[in-house]
Amino acid sequence: MPDLAYHAPDTIKQATDLLAANKGSRPLAGGTDLIVQMQSGRVAPVAIVDLKRIASLKEIREEAGYFAIGAAVPCTSLKNNKALVAEWPGVVEAANLIGSVQVRNRATMSGNLCNASPAADSVPALVAAGATAIVTGASGEREVPVEQIPTAPGKTSLADGEFVSEIRIPRQQKGGSDAYLRSIPRTEMDIAVVGAAASIVLDASGTCTSARIAVGAVAPTVLLVEDASKALVGSKLDDAAVAKAMAAVSAACNPIDDKRGTVAYRKAMAGVLAKRVIQIARERAGGN
């Protein structure tokens, strides 16, 4: 077994240099997936590059157009940013359903995204929110929609040596809000059997001007259901529109039978949860 090395760089430049220099190395943010995978022997990186000593990655910045959430910001810290909670309560809730308090004090949304589990809780909420990821590597930065990061279970579009340094969530529009719910057999400590997020914008009359519905654990990657948006935009989110969106969500699902749930149950739950998150988001957005 090759020796493993641990590095804790202070700057992004040092981190990208280390990742570039050590082929087969892995960035470490919260470690709640990576360390488990290392312990069980599923992954055997040659080097660990700990991002948590890089000051800029531990911040949440409130820019004019977006929130920038550093790669080393643990999920529980999101709750301390009042503006973020006010504008994107669903994103903050989604990130704070992962594991336990102990886990969320370590786990990060960037890590949740790059672990590329179809059941990742924060990802549907980020997709619904229209978030992007800043992908950093030796050759610089690029900004990509978060839904383009995971490509298959456990696989990402990141090139060797690249890592997600920041997640950007646009500032909420007037009349907009979001919500995330998941289906699990227990009340905590479970992986989502299905997760669903809605990001809704209502105009002054209560008409939906924008809707993004994303579901997790029902396909190899998180799905953004365009047909659900079509069903909702232009409506007042009345029962008929919501029912159409539910049907669109269930139809879009392409789940598998596994130890956590069946195909039929997942399809049905995707619709039910979609309905519920639309309702919650609508209420939060000021609709009736």
Binding site: A8, G30, Q39, S40, K52
Partner: peptide, 29 residues
């Protein structure tokens, strides 16, 4: 459990509780 699922290894690291089985010892520097 060794996988962050049982909490029996809970410690407080810089003021926040974590599962010490999900922290590398080197990180404690």
């Amino acid at each position: 459990c060794g996988s962050g699922d049982c909490g029996a290894c809970t410690v407080v690291l810089d003021g926040e509780m974590v599962c010490s089985c999900l922290v590398l010892a080197s990180e404690a520097q």
